[in-house]
Design a protein around this nucleic acid. Structure first.
Lengths: 345, 345
DNA sequence: AGATTCAATGTGAGCGCTAACATGCGGAAT
DNA sequence: ATTCCGCATGTTAGCGCTCACATTGAATCT
């Protein structure tokens, strides 16, 4: 194991001494090689290799006042969406030469968010991406004193901070209209937790699509994103013979609904059609394959970093941007035309 | 938005000036309050509040030579396992006052790993947790020059670095023996990619359990963890009338197998029994509910951080530790007794 | 030839903080 | 009183690096 922990790390000064130049010259070789003559460049390079020199990023950051690191505040969950967005962020950040520091929050409250933001802020990140999509997030954020630009990723009300998200309302409408177009008189809805902005926007989109079609909106059932809550909602829905179409606010809950229906002998899509939201890698392999709304989380992460990068560069333009990504309806086997005879009564 | 980006941040010196004490005293109030008299403590505290002082972690790190940050190298995937482990690490790190920086690698090659390790190393992390479970990882790691302690999380051959993992062989044996106990003559196997250590260990465990029962081991089918590859494997398996029991190396592929069997009219568990690996939140809601091997990824992350913390504290004991967590068989509806008449021929 | 430019390098200061070593002071010990 | 101790605080130096500004020497101009 080639570990040099014992032997002190080589510093700029060490390299300078070995190469017979000043520290500044070595610094230039590292940061702006064009300003150093080829000959000395060569000599310095050799010294660096020999000593295995690697710049101390921390010292650089201290003196430059920027760390080339972005902080990500994420919600403490192994859910597909946040995890994929984090990945997109990491990838985009790396491409632009940023490091990534993360802080997860376990609850939606003010204090957790403050701690997370401060812990990153104190580490002198150049900017923050927040994937903590609670209704309360934007407000909490406003009351915090921060030192860096922030981009909200996922959802949020514009005006608080620049925000990049996937058009939830659009996605929900797409899903609902699809079911309506299939001949269903109305569409039931299993919603996410009401303190998530995304839940609200999806519910709004569903309601809007129903209204536009002059269809009645049955009261939505609220879940917590988990398959189990979807299962429970499915049980409820199964008792209502009116149910012919369901729009579920995420794929995990849709799986639960599927499972409950299967257990109750309700066939999908023959008796009831189901649409999910997210398009996780698993969704195409559910039984039946799930019709759903695809969200490109990777792209979300990339756009967030790009935006943040711009904000970091010219600190002036803090115009409250709102960048919306188009979701996409993916039609698979869980939706079908409504049969004329009553479904399961 | 209370952003102070324009007004320069308050420094120790500013606080000292306002409180009428020396910088050192302020530093003491922050780090070892016991050494300062209550009276000045009070005064300094007031000055800090007034100026909204927050210590510059970077400057502290530079002078102390430690950053109270750990780096996590993870594989670029939204898979459940790595994502959950990352969460466990973050949580454990936060509890111990560590920040977390991440670097994802997209491919299994040497260069990617080196870049990731160096990029974290250069940011002066105090230690590294690596969740990049390729066969080649350990070797690559050895040839790298690093400056901090490393803990391998997930799997790995002992001896390269301290390692904490879930006992894959044990889990695979548990799964296989369960199927054998149900009366199946042999157990087919859908394996993960052969360049993942975890795949190999699971395959080994499966083979060992078969051998112990003097059962023949059919050639395993290799997938890539994805549901699609599981689906393809399922199609293959469906053609073989001998198949009565399948051990699939992760739940996502098991879902694919389930889907293929369903499509071919093979009933689970009546015709064929299936066991997965991981126990994702979805697994209990597959059709049928999946019997699987539970891995506690959160615990994995916590143990990894705990171990790393110890290594960071006393840099001496680099004894190659190996900490194994026990997996757990979760029996659900996808496994059943083998029927005496031939399954599906 | 002298003045002017430019490219290549060097110098000093300081980013914000803390380790290690002073300093000053009141009170206990002699 | 004198010595000594220990507490509360201050001073100096330096972590590793880059900024802003010299300083060189040679090439270019008039």
């Amino acid at each position: 194991m080639t570990e040099q922990s014992a032997a002190k790390l080589a510093t700029l000064a060490d390299v300078a001494r070995l190469a017979g130049v000043s520290a500044m010259t070595v610094s230039r070789v590292v940061n702006e090689p064009a300003k150093v003559s080829p000959a000395t460049q060569e000599r310095v390079q050799q010294a660096m290799d020999q000593l295995r020199y690697r710049p101390n990023v921390m010292a650089q950051s201290l003196v430059r006042g920027r760390s080339r690191t972005i902080g990500v505040v994420t919600f403490d969950t192994a859910q597909y969406g946040p995890a994929a967005a984090l990945l997109g962020i990491e990838r985009a950040a790396r491409e632009r030469g940023y490091g990534v520091a993360i802080a997860a929050i376990e609850r939606a409250d003010h204090a957790s968010l403050r701690d997370a933001v401060h812990s990153l802020d104190d580490r002198l990140v150049d900017g923050l991406v927040i994937i903590a999509p609670f209704v309360s997030t934007a407000g909490a954020l406003r009351s915090l004193d921060r030192r860096t630009p922030v981009v909200l990723a996922g959802a949020g009300h514009a005006g608080e901070a620049p925000i990049v998200g996937i058009d939830q309302g659009k996605g929900a409408s797409l899903a609902t209209r699809h079911l309506l177009d299939l001949g269903h008189r109305t569409v039931h809805h299993v919603a996410g937790p009401s303190d998530w902005i995304e839940s609200r926007l999806r519910t709004d989109g569903w309601r809007a699509a129903l209204e536009a079609a002059a269809a009645a909106a049955p009261p939505p059932i609220e879940g917590d994103w988990s398959p189990l809550s979807g299962y429970n909602a499915g049980l409820l829905l199964a008792n209502d013979p009116q149910t012919t179409a369901v729009f579920v606010a995420n794929d995990q809950m849709a799986l639960g609904v599927l499972s409950a229906f299967h257990e109750r002998g309700i066939r999908v899509p023959e008796d009831v059609s189901i649409v999910g939201f997210d398009d996780t890698p698993e969704s195409a392999f559910y039984t039946p394959a799930l019709t759903t709304v695809r969200q490109d989380f990777i792209l979300l992460g990339e756009v967030a970093v790009e935006l943040l990068d711009r904000l970091v560069a010219d600190e002036g333009s803090t115009a409250p941007v709102k960048h919306l990504i188009e979701p996409q309806l993916v039609i698979r086997a869980s939706t079908g035309r409504m049969r004329q005879d009553h479904p399961h009564s």
